[in-house]
């Protein structure tokens, strides 16, 4: 029972992590760079006119 509960929690944590990465990606942030977008000035998408 304990194994099932912990495995379930772990699956949830992994799912939340993946969701967070996907969400950041959709918002133009890069999970790989830590989503440090305030220093980025819109680095993950094209600047207007380019």
């Amino acid at each position: 029972m304990g194994t099932c509960i912990i495995a379930l929690i772990l699956v949830c944590v992994v799912a939340l992590s993946i969701r967070s990465i996907r969400k950041d990606r959709k918002e133009g942030k890069s999970a790989g760079c830590g989503g440090d977008c305030r220093h980025c000035g819109g680095c993950c998408h094209d600047i207007g006119g380019r």
């Binding site: 760079c33 830590g34 440090d36 000035g41 680095c43």
Partner: peptide, 8 residues
């Protein structure tokens, strides 16, 4: 801080 914004 991070190489990515630096490159950008």
């Amino acid at each position: 801080g991070c190489g990515v914004p630096g490159i950008m």
